[in-house]
Design a protein around this nucleic acid. Structure first.
Lengths: 206, 206
DNA sequence: CGGAGGTAAGTGAATGGTCACTTACTTCTC
DNA sequence: GAGAAGTAAGTGACCATTCACTTACCTCCG
C-alpha cells in the first residue's frame, strides 16, 4: 500500500531522529529546535545539516518512525489469520495504548501539531498515516460484520473511528494526568468491553 | 465548583479574543502571533497591550471561552433532571461533536498545544477544564450505574474517558479529512450505539 | 460657555531574543 | 590528500514587548 522508499538511514541519522523524538515526547513538535537537537546529540546546530538537508526533512523522518511504531505493527496484527477478528481488534487497540504509554502520547502530539502545520508535505504525510491506520481498522470491522447478519449497527468507518477514540482519549489524559493505575484499568477492563460492544462476532446471536 | 472570577470583558477585549479564536481555528495556537491578531482586529500590535497585559493573559482568556463553550453547557445538561441518564450522556457527547464541527476541532487543538506548553498557568488551566469535563461524565456514569446492579462493567472513569474519545477521534479526523456526510453518520448512528453500549440503564436487564 | 487637565486607545519605531540556515574554516580517517 | 564530519561565527526573518508620542473624548471649574 504505502510504498517504502527505503529510508536507508545512516547510524548518525538514526541517532539524530531518536534524540529528536525524545524532544517531541517531552514537549511536542513546537519544542523541537535545531539548537536543542544539537544539544541532545552532542554537537552543534550546523552539524545537523551534514545529515539532513532541512529541518523539514528531519521532521518528515519522524513520520517514518511513527509509521513504523504505529501503522506497521497493526497491519501485521490485522493480517494474522490465527486470531479471530475480535482478538485482532483488541490486540490493535492494546498495541496503540501501549505505545501511547511508552511514548508519552507521542502519536497524538505529532498528529495534532502536524495537522495545523503550514508545510503541505508534513500535512500530507500525516494524512496518509492516519488514513492507513483507519483503513486497517475499518477493513477488520467489515470483515467482522460480514461474518454476522447484523446490519443495523453503525457503519464500519464510524466503528473504526470509535476504536481510535479510546487510545486517543487515553493519550490526552496521560498528558495531563498520567496515572499508571488508571491506565492499567483502562487496558484491562475497558478495551475488552469496547471491542465486545461492537456487536461484530458470534456469541451474542442467541 | 470552578469559581468564576468574573472576566467582565470590555467589548474590545471580547473582539480581540474572538479574532484570536479565529486564528486558532485556522492553524492552532502556534499560528497565533501578536502581528496576526492586530491584523485581524485592524490595529497595530502595540494596541493589543492596551487591552491585555501580555499575550499569555490573552491566551488564558481563550481558555475561559473554551470553558464557556464546552464545560458549562455539559454541566447544564448533566443537571437536567427531566432527562434520563442515558439521554443526558447522549446529549453531552452530541454537544461536544457539534462544537467540534462548528469550531473546526478547536477543543482538541487547544488541548494538545496547551498540554505541551511551557507556561504553567496555561497548563494548569487546561488541566482544570479537562478535569471538570471528565468529572461531569464520570458523575453521570456513576449515577447510571447506581440505578442498575451491573458491577462487572468497566469503572466509571474508564467509561467517561471512552465517551470523551468519540468526539476526540472525530475532531482529529475532521482536521485531516473533513467530511460532513461521514460526520452526520457518526452523530446519528454511532453516538446512540456508544451510549447504549455502556450497559448502564434498565431495558437490557432481561 | 470655554478652556485646562485627565484618560483611554491608538501609532511607528525601536528592543533583545530566538529561529532555521549558511559560510568559511578545521580535523580526522582511509 | 581528499572527502566526510565537525566547528565558530555569522545571516536575515520573525517573535513578544516597550517606548515616546498623538488623538479624541470626558469632566470640572470660573
Amino acid at each position: 500500500m504505502t510504498i517504502r522508499t527505503g529510508p536507508a538511514r545512516t547510524p548518525r541519522q538514526v541517532q539524530i531522529l531518536e534524540k529528536t523524538l525524545e524532544l517531541v515526547r517531552e514537549g511536542g513538535l513546537a519544542h523541537v529546535t535545531t539548537k536543542r537537537i544539537a544539544e541532545r546529540v552532542g554537537f552543534t546546530e550546523a552539524a545537523i545539516y551534514r545529515h539532513f538537508p532541512t529541518k523539514q526533512a528531519l521532521i518528515l523522518g519522524l513520520m517514518d518512525l511513527l509509521e513504523d511504531m504505529l501503522v506497521e505493527p497493526i497491519r501485521a496484527i490485522a493480517g494474522d489469520g490465527s486470531l479471530s477478528v475480535r482478538q485482532r481488534l483488541e490486540a490493535i487497540v492494546r498495541h496503540h495504548t501501549t505505545l501511547v504509554r511508552e511514548q508519552n502520547s507521542l502519536p497524538i502530539l505529532l498528529l495534532a501539531e502536524a495537522s495545523v502545520s503550514e508545510d503541505p508535505a508534513l500535512l500530507g504525510r500525516m494524512r496518509s498515516i492516519f488514513h492507513d491506520y483507519l483503513s486497517v481498522l475499518e477493513g477488520l470491522v467489515r470483515e467482522g460484520q460480514a461474518q454476522d447478519e447484523i446490519v443495523q449497527a453503525p457503519e464500519a468507518d464510524c466503528l473504526a473511528l470509535l476504536l481510535l477514540g479510546a487510545p486517543a482519549a487515553l493519550a490526552i489524559r496521560h498528558r495531563l494526568f498520567p496515572d499508571a493505575r488508571a491506565e492499567d484499568r483502562f487496558e484491562h477492563s475497558l478495551i475488552p468491553h469496547l471491542v465486545s460492544s461492537l456487536d461484530l462476532n458470534p456469541g451474542r446471536k442467541a
